[in-house]
Design a binder for these strands. Sequence first.
DNA 1: CGCAACGTTGAATACCATCAAATCCTGTGG
DNA 2: CCACAGGATTTGATGGTATTCAACGTTGCG
Lengths: 248, 248
Amino acid sequence: MSTGAKAGIQVPCSFCPLRKQPAFRDFAPEELEFVHRFKKGELRVERGATVLAEGAASAHFYTVLAGWGFRYKLLADGRRQIVNYVVPGDLVGLQGTLMGEMQHSVEALSAMTLCVFDRERLFRLYEKHPSLAYDVTWIAAREECMLDENLLAVGRRSATERLAYLLSFLRDRARGTGFGVEGRIPITQQHVADTLGLSLVHTNRTVRKLVARKLIGWGEGGAAVLEPEALAELAHWDAGTRIPRPFI
Amino acid sequence: MSTGAKAGIQVPCSFCPLRKQPAFRDFAPEELEFVHRFKKGELRVERGATVLAEGAASAHFYTVLAGWGFRYKLLADGRRQIVNYVVPGDLVGLQGTLMGEMQHSVEALSAMTLCVFDRERLFRLYEKHPSLAYDVTWIAAREECMLDENLLAVGRRSATERLAYLLSFLRDRARGTGFGVEGRIPITQQHVADTLGLSLVHTNRTVRKLVARKLIGWGEGGAAVLEPEALAELAHWDAGTRIPRPFI
DNA sequence: CGCAACGTTGAATACCATCAAATCCTGTGG
DNA sequence: CCACAGGATTTGATGGTATTCAACGTTGCG
């Protein structure tokens, strides 16, 4: 498992690159110190690496520091459903930490850097820092929100609307996390198909249509949103107000 | 809002009906006392009542004591997606409590009794009872798990598999919560359609097929699972091991 | 240079949506 | 008791959306 994993050098949390990003709220000094001691190390993985595998009882959970990843589930016959994407600031593996065993897998979409925490020390965090515990729950609730939206998209939108939604959504998620809007979204059409519940062929035709309308770009390592407003409107989607969010 | 809502008589939490049910773990005495003081009252609603509305900033959140409900989202043009169902022991409104505003609505599928908590006192729970805070997060993580499964179903299963999955899933959720397996699942075909991303007509044809195969029953106020094993197999679904779960 | 991953396109077909209308059931009021 | 309304279910007919099968182009890499 974890192909391409490397142990990293421990950087003090006070220098955490996420703190500078506008999407995130900052810590109180005593929280920062606690998190620094809580942190066990860093993990670097390459694109395509499996960060966490369904069925595993990993000893760790992580906060994403850099890079893109995705969470997915498989049916026995190989059909794959991507349930959500992960970007910097997201917790991965919390579900496995709480419930014992991962119910989904996590794979890196790009090279990723992750902050490593020990599973068994999570409860200490709940005992010592209620405010951080509250933040963990906040992050879990936000994930739930995103899944609700993804379900709405897959269940009730047409193929074109789904694609418009997904790219709007991913662009919005990347904003303020240190990627910059200029960057492409490093997904293939197979990822899109497995996210939206479409076949690869139909996904391609749908992509072609939106490219022809100059709403999106495709190629050179991923997707690009060219007309954010028009795309969001086509998707019947509203990003809502984004408040600075907590992370651990 | 909340058509049919009634204030209820406060029952001490030590007599909470959920404590007797096998699906739930029990409280430590000091936790029980804290929750009893934390509880603000009870709410009774009729079938069809809106418990919480998307966009609202309710002052409360709830634990379901009895009855069925469902969570859903709407598109501007009226398309509806049911994202999950709620059964006794589930928290409703936690997302709105944490993030300020509800991003989905909750409606009663049957008469429901809910235990009422004050939104602004949630943080007190995190400060005073880390173990209960941990349980809240556990419940949120479990919701996330269920949403992942629902997404897998809607995105990657055929209509027949989806229906088989949904009824297996709902039957499994009801087990051990005080409904009894004997009871029917109080949903209409419109609910099924809006859960599985299907049209009402096609939902009906799919229901007819499974009824003809005697895997399920339909009518007299809802659906019934006649052949749980065969249905789960048809759905390519495995309930997994169910451990006693916490509730608040 | 061969292979693998990704993207693209055409053709045939299947699944599911839509439109339309009929039936059944239950609760309500006359 | 019956008429009636409304919700829920059922069925047929038709068409569109999306899947499947198949093939080919491109790029990058060992």
